[in-house]
Structures are given as structure tokens and as C-alpha cells.
């Protein structure tokens, strides 16, 4: 039986929340490992890893730079160059935050790279989530490659007009204008046509809707989703209570 997309979303979301609330090294590392394992088992690791790296590498470097080089609250100084002070506390804080963010990011990415977007959209519609939100999500994902291809076509068309993009910020900025203007104009025009087409097909109708695509669901999954959400809520409440008591 296939996993219902909302079950996946609930699992990823509550994992991210619980990891953030718990804020413990071992749990974060376990979640990182778990997310990678799930993604590898689902065959999405090849796409997930570059996307995760694009987000997490700069973030981790930034954290190391911020807290590794300057952590005024730190006491154990490991090295010092002028104003920069490398402290054990700073490095610890940076790594700890990095692992925690990594865990949340990987859990969510493991979901978004494995979910079938059409199923998710159908499931959201069935649960009464505004059809317009599902539309924005699905349409953005469809348009991303289409608009990239359109931008490429515009670049080609302008090369054929004799445009040679030279190096340097000014030239690139000028070239950006030349390519952005027809792109935005075409996108706004196409959106106008699409809006009319959607309206004619009942996009804004207020009555009840049906769904052509069926997404299998089960009582077990429904219970699981409820349990996951409860667990996330409990983790948040627990953390807030302990911090209120301790702080």
C-alpha cells in the first residue's frame, strides 16, 4: 500500500518540529541518517543530495564563520588573530545548530523529493485545502522548467539578433534587462490567457468539486497522521514548559 502524501508530509513536518524542540545532538544525527536512508531507499538520494548541499553547505560555513571566529560569550580560546577569537564554545554552538538545521532540512527534503505532486494536490483538494493554494504549488513546479526553457529560447533569439554578452557586471546587467523584458512580458501575457482559460473552466466556482485522480487512504494512515501531529504538539509544549521553568 502506497504512503498517502499527507502522511509523508505529517511525518516530515513533525520530525522537523520534534528535532528542533528537542535540540539534542544524538537525535539530530539520527534524523539526518534516517532521512538519508529513507531517501536512498526511495531512489531519490541522487537528486536530494545536490539540493541539500546547495542549501546546507553555505549555511554551515556561515555558522562556522559567525560563531567560530567570533563568540564573545566563549571562554575556552583555541586561537586568536586580531579581533577574531576561535573558542570551543563557539565551534560547539555552530556545529550543534548546523546539525539541528541539517536534520530538519533533510527530513523535509526527503519528503518533497519523494512525494508525487499531483497526488499531494489531489489529497489537499480532497481535505478541503483551498484549491488555489494547491494551484500555486503545482503550477510553480510545472512552470519552473517551462520558464527556464523560455528564458533559454529568448537568449538564443537575442543572440540571433547580434547580442554578444560580454564579461563584466555592467554588460551582464544590461543583458539581463534585454532578456528579462521579453520574458516578463510574455509571462504576463500568457498568464492573462491562462487566467481566462481557467475561469472558463470553473476555476473560481464556489460549488463543490470532485477529483478525477484518486489517492488511496486508510484508517491506519489517518490514525498515524493524528499521532504524528499530537507528538509534534506535545514536543513543542514540553519544550516551552521546561524553558519557562528553567529560564
Amino acid at each position: 500500500m502506497r504512503l498517502h502524501p499527507l502522511t509523508g508530509l505529517a511525518a516530515a513536518g513533525s520530525t522537523a518540529v520534534i528535532t528542533t524542540a528537542a535540540g539534542s545532538w544524538p537525535l539530530s544525527l539520527a534524523v539526518v541518517a534516517g532521512a538519508l536512508a529513507v531517501s536512498a531507499a526511495g531512489g531519490t538520494a541522487r537528486r536530494l543530495l545536490p539540493a541539500a548541499a546547495a542549501v546546507l553547505v553555505p549555511l554551515t560555513l556561515s555558522l562556522l564563520m559567525v560563531h567560530g571566529l567570533a563568540y564573545p560569550e566563549g571562554r575556552t580560546v583555541l586561537a586568536e588573530w586580531g579581533p577574531a577569537r576561535v573558542t570551543a564554545e563557539g565551534l560547539g554552538f555552530a556545529l550543534q545548530r548546523a546539525v539541528q538545521v541539517c536534520a530538519a532540512v533533510l527530513a523535509l527534503l526527503a519528503f518533497s523529493f519523494s512525494v508525487s505532486v499531483p497526488d499531494l494536490v489531489a489529497a489537499m483538494n480532497a481535505k478541503g485545502v483551498s484549491g488555489r493554494f494547491a494551484f500555486v504549488l503545482a503550477s510553480t513546479l510545472t512552470l519552473l522548467p517551462a520558464i527556464a526553457a523560455q528564458a533559454e529560447r529568448i537568449r538564443t533569439a537575442q543572440e540571433a539578433r547580434g547580442l554578444v554578452i560580454r564579461r563584466g557586471l555592467v554588460h551582464r546587467a544590461a543583458a539581463f534587462r534585454l532578456q528579462a523584458v521579453p520574458l516578463v512580458l510574455a509571462l504576463v501575457d500568457d498568464a492573462g490567457t491562462r487566467a481566462a482559460a481557467l475561469e472558463a473552466r470553473g476555476f473560481s466556482s464556489s460549488g463543490p468539486r470532485t477529483s478525477y485522480r484518486t489517492v488511496p487512504d486508510s484508517t491506519a494512515q489517518r490514525l498515524l497522521r493524528a499521532a504524528l501531529l499530537l507528538a509534534a504538539a506535545a514536543a513543542v509544549v514540553l519544550r516551552l514548559l521546561t524553558s519557562a521553568a528553567g529560564g
Binding site: 494551484f135 510553480t140 498568464a191 492573462g192 491562462r194 487566467a195 476555476f203
Partner: peptide, 11 residues
């Protein structure tokens, strides 16, 4: 929002 705006949002 009117549909013409909703359709522009993904863009």
C-alpha cells in the same frame, strides 16, 4: 484575489 492575479503568482 481575481484569477488573473492568482495565475500570476506562480510566475
Amino acid at each position: 484575489l481575481p484569477a488573473s492575479t492568482v495565475v500570476l503568482i506562480p510566475v
